[in-house]
């Protein structure tokens, strides 16, 4: 309940009009959205029960490691309702395969569709999406961990919430199935980060400072 209550409202894209080149404009719009999503995610993470009980060092490590996974849960969640094969980055930023391809995001499109289809088939609920986002952060396998006991408690609390929720729906296998989707989520996030790093080098897309900082931790 707490995760749902604090789940941030979806952001809208601010369409970039600084260039006539549509693929560049798409990338700039996407990066701006990503930066704002990241800010909101950090604010949200602080409200996840147990997060503030972690040391500041661990809070930073978890976010630096798991931010893209958490954000992609949102993209996959928003995209699962679409009839077409669009990725819904925001209500007003829906990209199909051709648009992604022309923006240099073909590999990202493919990876994100794979993830989206997986969640689409499971009919992910809002509760599950919120839980997965929190679990992705908590489970980001940072090394070294400053305070392992607090991290373990944080993870256990989220796990327990997920089990309770699925038990209330009398869905015996769903919690396990969701957790089994985490490797694909990580793989997809890795692709997304690689794509961003590549775009930054190739096109010299100006990235916001926070986004650069988070990418820097991944590079």
């Amino acid at each position: 309940s707490h995760l749902l209550l604090t789940d941030p409202a979806p952001l809208a894209a601010n369409h970039d009009d600084s260039t006539n080149e549509s693929s560049l404009s798409t990338l700039l719009t996407l990066c701006d959205l990503l930066n704002r999503e990241l800010l909101v995610l950090i604010g949200w993470a602080k409200q996840i029960p147990g997060f503030s009980g972690l040391s500041l060092v661990d809070q930073m490590s978890l976010l630096q490691s798991g931010w893209m996974e958490a954000l992609l849960v949102g993209v996959a969640w928003r995209s699962q309702g679409t009839l077409g094969e669009e990725l819904v980055f925001a209500g007003n930023l829906r990209l199909d395969e051709a648009q992604c391809r022309s923006a240099g995001l073909a590999d990202l499109y493919e990876a994100l569709r794979h993830l989206t289809i997986k969640y689409q088939m499971m009919r992910l609920s809002p509760e599950e999406a919120a839980a997965l986002k929190a679990v992705a952060l908590a489970n980001s396998d940072v090394d070294p961990v400053d305070c392992p006991d607090s991290l373990q408690r944080f993870q256990d609390g989220l796990h327990e919430a997920l089990l309770d929720y699925e038990a209330s729906r009398r869905e015996q296998h769903r919690a396990g199935r969701l957790l089994m989707s985490l490797p694909l989520l990580r793989q997809t996030a890795h692709r997304a980060v690689q794509t961003l790093l590549r775009l930054q080098h190739q096109h010299r897309i100006p990235l916001h400072k926070l986004l650069l900082e988070m990418l820097d931790a991944k590079a």
Binding site: L39, I42, G43, K46, L56, V57, Q59, M60, L63, Q64, K209, L210, E213, M214, D216, A217
Partner: peptide, 15 residues
């Protein structure tokens, strides 16, 4: 963690 000033600040802000 010196390099990650913005994240550090965001986490330390209470709101």
């Amino acid at each position: 963690k010196e390099k990650h000033k913005i994240l550090h600040q965001l986490l330390q802000n209470s709101t």
